[in-house]
């Protein structure tokens, strides 16, 4: 019989940041407590089985009011995939106009269904600032 153990997490699903305690025996989750809402339980379960993260960054853009276009992942990727995702995004380059939500890269770092999307609309401007 595997021993009962606990894991502590801080829920990051919202700004409250509930301290969570997850009790498990091997892979088996026994109990989760500390959450203020059920997203917390979901988060602890996810962290325990398959921790995922998302992030945002920028890619260069030409012909827009600023030189960078903010982008984000459309959904979280496994935590270990962040460096690969970042490396893939680093190769991107956009050209104005770009629409909010426009997909710039599909299945980033080989994670099916996770895209790199534009976080804002950037119109084409006549004179790009130097």
């Amino acid at each position: 019989m595997t021993e009962r153990q606990e894991q502590h997490y801080v829920c990051i699903s919202c700004p409250i940041g509930c301290p969570l305690r997850l009790v498990h025996e091997g892979d088996q989750i026994i109990e989760i407590e500390g959450q203020e809402c059920n997203r917390g339980a979901k988060y602890a379960r996810q962290e325990f089985t398959d921790p995922r993260r998302t992030f945002s960054t920028t890619v260069p853009i030409t012909g827009a009011v600023y030189g960078r276009l903010p982008v984000k992942l459309s959904a979280p990727v496994p935590r270990q995939a962040i460096p690969a995702a970042m490396a893939a995004i680093r190769l991107l380059c956009a050209e104005a106009p770009v629409r909010l939500g426009q997909v710039l890269l599909r299945d980033v770092a080989g994670v099916a269904g996770v895209d790199v999307v534009a976080c804002r609309t950037m119109d084409r401007v006549m004179i790009a600032p130097s």
Binding site: P60, R79, P83, A84, M86, A88, R90, L91
Partner: peptide, 28 residues
Amino acid sequence: DREAAMTEAGATTGDPAAGATEEAPCSD
């Protein structure tokens, strides 16, 4: 930085994502 990443990626495989894993900003 981007140019460096491009050369690095180009030097390894055609798959851009495979090239720069050693940068590993994420600790485990």
